[in-house]
Design a protein around this nucleic acid. Structure first.
Length: 267
DNA sequence: ATGTCAACACTTTGTTGA
């Protein structure tokens, strides 16, 4: 039987908040939603602990960039192994956080990011977040110059607009919605990238994160911080985008829900 | 003020990071 994909490619992103604690949930989600490409953040494991065999058993090959205790990103693809292009961002050699992984897969340049949270602000963590965003912008400009069909997907830890959160007042002092964070995010878009979920949901109210505390999920006290930014060519090929919201309500859930985009396959 | 969760360590309870 010849390998033939559907007429579109589904690329998903899931901040799983610990790949060891969440592996059954993750396998379940992959099998039920069948993304062609899946980008993971906060795997919270060293490279040696990455459960590649569990993914291979259900048809996914992977590359990963782990770290002890926190952070960590991975790119999975169904039936083929992503070809790594770069891990980590240039510009700050002393930065050892595992937050950036870039690969070529299924004809796309796929960048998986876990952008720094930045709390508390002001402070060194917030400064690191803003510097990281500048470094990301620099890399995204290089990718754009290559004119490859590309997307940068993952946990941006930025709430872009007031209608992307249940209450602006509740988070007014948080690093995720400071004017500087939003301005840095807009600078990414101004360089020609399209926020797929934001574009398709101009009225807002579509969330990707609900805190574990204070009954945030039950009250729908969420916000949108997981984003897929598409290069101009991919923006033209955008078919659909969404959030797998129900997975936030399952047992032992991550505090994030998966997001996905569907891209028309090239003729 | 903070109602949660995961990983780690001088580990069974406190610290860090979210």
């Amino acid at each position: 039987m010849s390998e033939k994909r559907a007429s579109s490619i589904k690329v998903a992103s899931f901040n799983i908040n610990g790949i060891k604690a969440r592996l059954p949930r993750l396998i379940e989600w992959l099998e039920e939603t069948q993304p062609d490409i899946a980008c993971l953040q906060e795997i919270k494991t060293q490279d040696e602990g990455f459960p590649a065999a569990d993914f291979a058993a259900i048809g996914y090959e992977a590359i990963w960039h782990g770290q002890k205790g926190f952070n960590g990103v991975a790119i999975l693809a169904r039936g083929e192994r992503p070809v790594e292009v770069q891990r980590g961002l240039a510009g700050e050699p002393e930065d050892e956080h595992s937050r950036y992984l870039e690969a070529d897969v299924m004809g796309l340049r796929v960048v998986c990011i876990y952008l720094p949270n930045g709390n508390p602000q002001p402070g060194p963590k917030f400064d690191y977040k803003l510097r990281w965003m500048e470094r990301l912008k620099t890399r995204m400009a290089q990718i754009a110059a290559e004119e490859v069909p590309a997307l940068v997907i993952g946990d941006y830890n930025v709430i872009p607009r007031d209608n992307d959160i249940w209450s602006t007042r509740a988070m007014a002092d948080d690093a995720l919605m400071q004017p500087e964070s939003r301005a840095a995010y807009r600078r990414l878009l101004h360089a020609g990238w399209t926020d797929a979920l934001g574009l398709l949901n101009p009225r807002g109210g579509v969330y990707t994160f609900w805190d574990y505390q204070a009954g945030a999920w039950q009250r729908d006290h969420g916000f949108r911080i997981d984003h897929a930014l598409l290069s101009p060519e991919l923006a033209d090929r955008l078919v659909a985008a969404g959030v797998d919201k129900t997975y936030r309500g399952r047992e032992k859930a991550s505090d994030h829900a998966p997001v996905w985009v569907s891209i028309a396959e090239h003729a």
